[in-house]
């Protein structure tokens, strides 16, 4: 299967390869053939990111790429593979989200971010709270007042239990001293369905999950859990503006295998830092409401160290 997929993808990409070789020769990276792996299944968040990255690198450098879905074990299959079976020659990158930190904290003995090489943080995925258009709550203040008047009276849907959104919701409840009923679903799409049917009062998700409804006005953003307001929804205040500095750290980045050469690492980071305005990469992150938030190898590692401690406390609190 894996081989079949590679052959098919390679055949697809042979054409641009033949015509665009010269552009790549000035660079150390990317190499002529690049594998972009992800723990997401086809159509999932990491998969869509890597497919867009693949096309962007193909068009810019004329290289051939393969997207390799290593699905399973809540990301553990892909991480084990990256930590033990991949050559550190810069031909293989893997997408990373908070899942790659959370899973090794749940199960002992799995490779963590410390067993591979963090290369770059690319984006922060904004977390927002949104309600149905028919909801009586027009603003975040009204929503919070209602929760204060009736503890546990309001329900907030999240994509899945133990996820980063779950952590943000927990931090939100702590900071505001409010009580909500947390309703986990089988993914953000299911939570949006529940909100559209008005079976829950709000969802805590990234805006991409309900984008067409947010744009059409059937759903409405009340608040944003990041440092600045969203360009696409400038009316929704940040939680910090309301006096509660609750920030979500839903990063999207790439890892490489262990023992990568320092110069290679910097070369990859330099290329990734420089493609935000290339297409289709730009369309991808603008349409998905992602915030470009580039961090190079060292800063990303330091950021992961902090996030890992926060996740550890969060998971300990769940038990």
């Amino acid at each position: 299967m894996q081989h079949l997929r590679k052959i098919v993808s390679a055949a697809t990409l042979a054409l641009p390869f033949a015509f665009g070789m010269s552009a790549a020769q000035a660079q150390d990276w990317p190499p002529q053939s690049l594998t972009l792996a992800t723990h997401s299944s086809p159509g999932g968040g990491g998969d869509i990111m890597m497919r867009n990255l693949a096309r962007t690198l193909e068009e810019k450098f004329g290289v051939t790429t393969v997207v390799d879905n290593r699905v399973g074990g809540s990301g553990a299959v892909a991480m084990s593979w990256l930590a033990t079976q991949v050559e550190p020659d810069g031909t293989t990158l893997k997408s990373v989200t908070p899942t790659q930190l959370l899973t090794p904290l749940r199960v002992e003995g799995l490779p963590s971010y410390e067993d591979v090489t963090p290369i770059a943080r690319l984006f922060l995925d904004p977390t927002t709270l949104y309600v149905h258009d028919d909801s009586p709550y027009q603003t975040m203040e009204e929503f919070m007042d209602a929760a204060r008047a009736d503890p546990r009276g309001l329900s907030i849907g999240i994509g899945s239990a133990g996820s980063l959104d779950n952590l943000v919701l927990q931090n939100f409840m702590r900071a505001t001293d409010l009580q909500f009923r947390t309703v986990p679903h089988e993914g953000g799409g299911d939570a949006v369905v529940a909100l559209l049917g008005q079976h829950i009062d709000a969802v805590l998700l990234n805006p991409g999950q309900g984008l067409s409804h947010l744009e059409a006005g059937t759903l409405r953003i009340l608040g944003v859990f990041q440092e600045e307001r969203l360009d696409a929804f400038p009316d929704a205040p940040t939680l910090a503006e309301l006096g509660y500095p609750v920030i979500s750290n839903k990063f999207r980045g790439v890892f490489g295998p262990p023992n990568m050469d320092r110069e290679l690492l910097d070369a990859i980071a330099a290329v990734l830092a420089d493609i935000y305005d290339d297409e289709p990469w730009r369309t991808y992150w603008v349409e998905s409401s992602l915030n470009p938030a580039f961090l190079g190898p060292d800063e990303f590692k330091a950021n992961l160290d902090i996030a890992n401690e926060e996740f550890r406390e969060f998971l300990a609190g769940l038990n």
Binding site: R106, V107, E108, S160, A161, G162, N166, P184, E186, L318
Partner: peptide, 11 residues
């Protein structure tokens, strides 16, 4: 599905 923790996975 409601705590996110492994269940009967025998490690």
């Amino acid at each position: 599905p409601f705590s996110g923790m492994p269940r009967f996975t025998f490690g």
